[in-house]
Simulated scan of single mutants.
Amino acid sequence: MRTTPSDLAELDRQVTECRACPRLVAWREEVGRVKRAAFADQTYWARPVPGFGPPDAALAIVGLAPAAHGANRTGRMFTGDRSGDVLYAALHAVGLASQPTAVHRDDGLTLFGTRITAPVRCAPPANKPTPVERDTCRPWLTQELALLRPTLRAIVVLGAFGWQSLLPALSATAWRIPRPTPRFAHATHVELAATDTGPTLHLLGCYHVSQQNTFTGKLTPAMLEAVLRQAKAVAGL
């Protein structure tokens, strides 16, 4: 039975122990056993992946779910795959990360005022969680946002799935979603009023750093860095 975590460290610990979605549990563990040939000598994480970054982050980055041979292998969001290569290089370029590469949990990478998370914490088959799996996982994201609430000022959402998944979690935490509901688009910027006494939240959209987007040029490093620079500015970093 889940208990309400008192801080992000406790939340992260609880996340790594979750077994709520049978299909995702079976898939992440199968991938960890079978492995990719290039990583045959490595021990896969093969568990839910917690968020990564300081507990007093002013900026959050929300993706989709861990990659089967990326974060499901390394245990850290966007670490060890080509999507992460693009994201961390951009974060470093705009001054939000201590280094441009992310290869494993103990590589010394530090994020500055930024936390990376996802609405689904287990690697899904074909990178496609079901709506039920997304909704089952949502309480983790809602609790994470609540714990970040004192310092959180901006969120960059990578892709339409993350955008659609995030809005209910924001509404359940401390922000009012306007009507009509804001639609995802690259470089969109929406300011959400608070439902408590805290400050507003800046919500920014960005195409996902998937290989499909980066290899085709739909998302270039310059485009990603521009969104991150804007987010950094409105977050006060």
Rank of each mutant, 00 (worst) to 15 (best):
T3I: 14
S6M: 04
E10L: 04
V15D: 03
R19K: 13
C21I: 14
R23T: 15
L24T: 09
V25L: 15
W27P: 00
W27H: 15
E30D: 07
E30S: 05
V31A: 12
K35F: 00
A37Q: 11
A38H: 00
Q42D: 02
T43M: 01
W45K: 03
G53N: 05
P54Y: 01
A57T: 05
A57P: 07
A58N: 09
V62T: 02
V62I: 14
R73N: 05
R82S: 05
S83L: 00
A93C: 00
L96T: 09
S98V: 12
D106K: 01
T110Q: 13
T110W: 07
L111A: 10
T117S: 13
P119S: 04
R121V: 11
R121N: 10
R121E: 02
P124W: 03
N127L: 12
E133F: 09
R134Y: 00
T136L: 15
P139T: 02
L147V: 11
P150M: 05
V157D: 04
L158R: 09
A160Y: 00
T173L: 01
A174T: 13
P178L: 01
R183D: 04
F184I: 05
H189A: 05
E191L: 06
E191W: 02
L192S: 09
A194G: 14
T200S: 15
T200N: 15
L201Q: 08
L203D: 06
G205M: 12
Y207E: 15
Y207W: 15
H208W: 02
H208Q: 07
V209W: 02
N213K: 06
F215V: 04
F215R: 13
G217R: 01
T220R: 12
M223T: 15
E225K: 10
Q230V: 04
L237A: 11
L237T: 11
